[in-house]
Amino acid sequence: MSFLKKLIKRTNDDNRKVLSVFVTAGFPTLESTISVCSAIYDAGADIIELGIPFSDPLADGPVIQTASQTALENGVTMEYIFKTSQSLKKNYPEKGLVLMGYSNPVMKYGLEKFLIQCKNSGVNGVILPDIPVEEFSDFYNGMIPEIDKILLTTPVSSEERIKTIDEIGSGFVYCVSILGTTGTRDDFEEDTLKNLERTRRIIKNNHMLIGFGISNAKSVQKFTPYCDGIIVGSAVIKAIADDYSNKTEWDRTIELISELSEARRVYN
């Protein structure tokens, strides 16, 4: 069983859904990433999805787009990502660490070299939203199976596709709650929950984490019955940006993570 799978199981056994938090590497500054990620782990996050910034993030809404742009202006490189990953994993060996980004920077770096560096830096899995089932086998070519390759489902994925995603993906299945790009939503339609229920029923091999649009305790609680964990991104990036501009190192962020962390408890 992979590190992530074990981590999710252990957390669920302890009556908690997993809390996975997306943070753009190098945002707001190169120096801040380790300190903000440490604060997020300390406040209760189980997994950090460290975002590899890309010039053309077409699955992302405005918040993560802006964070990526800032990170690139700050000079984030793949070497920086691995160095940061290594220090995080050294201090938090029990926590999960995943890299999330787009395929071009990975391909340019060299896929095999990238995956070996992941392994050497303590990264547990990768999420590349622009590598769907169609390109998955050609792209990863079965390389370095110790690193989980996480795939995404959406409300428009057919039952057959979800089965394939569950079969070939590893680590967990990233269930995108809504149609659209990343970013917080005020409300979710009834269809959203129906779809989560459907997706959960189809997935057999993996744990299912829900992401996109989750921003507060209320939305966490809405989703917890349908998943093994939740993923938060844009809301956290906003909090980090607020903390940075108000010089409140990382009060608002910690407050948000603590709130989410409390909300994902399951009381039997």
Binding site: L58, A59, S103, P129, D130, I131, P132, V133, E134, E135, L151, L152, T153, T154, V156, S157, S158, R161, I165, V176, L179, G180
Partner: peptide, 12 residues
Amino acid sequence: GGMYVPETLIPA
């Protein structure tokens, strides 16, 4: 070529 897009677009 190919289809390097997020899952949401694949059915379309």
